[in-house]
């Protein structure tokens, strides 16, 4: 859905905040609805919007809601700096600006008939939650599904209710780990890679998707390759500074790619030659 020729692609559309939910001490989820009678945003899992706090600035944020049916645009945001902190101050009824959706999607259709491994680090679970919704909506289309999620501490776990609900299902393998925890934590401690042995899949017939810090993705990939996965079976979401989201400002470049339009989701074999290089 690209804008008409006269419309500036840099003009945000007003969206009303309909719901605010605290996930953790610094992470929150916003539910947004287009102001007036504008149609809800159609998007694919993995896509992002440029979210604008009036007069404060605009930042790329992944869509973390359900791609099907939902009229709300859902964003889960970690407050780290100027704009995300301004977004954190939003209350029901406030109006934000939205441009998008932009970027490429996770390969949920390509994964049909296959086992699926999702590995998320920190806020990287947000875009993979959209994938989970899509997989669960057509559960019968997929083989085994494993969701491996790592975050800093038990207090940093986002979507806790949903994770617990999914963990209770017999047709899902949901594993959570934290980097460090107090003595009251009964779960796993360690990097996401430590969860991999618990994921069962057929290496010849699996699609894996990763979103999180580059080191986490690198080690997860290496571990999965040891278990027989090929580069073509793995997908990852890349992150760079973004000022436009539409391939014009030049900020998000990674070698020949504009992450905002050629990504953020890439098949690993496309970016393998760049991935992990320093300062690229």
């Amino acid at each position: 859905m690209s804008p008409g020729p006269c419309e500036s692609p840099m003009r945000p559309q007003p969206y009303v905040v309909r719901g605010v939910r605290r996930e953790t001490h610094d992470v929150f989820t916003l539910e947004l609805e287009p102001a007036g009678d504008a149609a809800p945003l159609a998007f694919g899992p993995g896509q992002f919007t440029m979210l604008y706090a009036f007069g404060m600035g605009e930042v790329p944020i992944s869509i973390s809601g359900d791609p099907a049916g939902n009229t709300m645009l859902v964003h889960t945001i970690r407050a780290v700096g100027t704009v995300t902190r301004a977004l954190e101050r939003c209350r029901k009824g406030d109006v934000l600006g939205v441009r998008g959706p932009f970027g490429t999607c996770w390969p949920v259709d390509e994964a049909a008939g296959k086992d699926v491994v999702l590995a998320a680090g920190g806020i990287g679970l947000a875009p993979l939650r959209s994938v989970m919704y899509r997989l669960l909506a057509r559960r019968e289309r997929y083989g085994r599904i494993a969701l491996l999620y790592g975050t800093r501490t038990p207090e940093d776990i986002v979507y806790r209710d949903e994770l617990e609900e999914w963990r209770g299902r017999l047709d899902l393998n949901v594993q959570v780990t934290v980097d460090r925890a107090g003595s009251d934590w009964r779960g796993n401690v360690g990097a996401v890679t430590t969860l991999l042995p618990r994921a069962e899949f057929d290496p010849a017939n699996t699609v894996a998707m990763f979103c999180g810090p580059e080191v986490m993705m690198r080690f997860t990939m290496l571990a999965l390759m040891k278990r027989g996965l090929q580069a073509e079976q793995m997908y990852l979401s890349m992150e760079r500074n973004m000022k436009c989201g539409i391939g014009l400002c030049g900020h998000c470049q990674l070698g020949p790619f504009f992450i905002c339009k050629d990504g953020p989701v890439f098949p690993y074999d496309r970016v393998k030659w760049l991935f992990g290089r320093e300062e690229i």
Partner: peptide, 9 residues
Amino acid sequence: FCHTVEDVT
């Protein structure tokens, strides 16, 4: 052609 975007009030 690189540019940035500044939002001000």
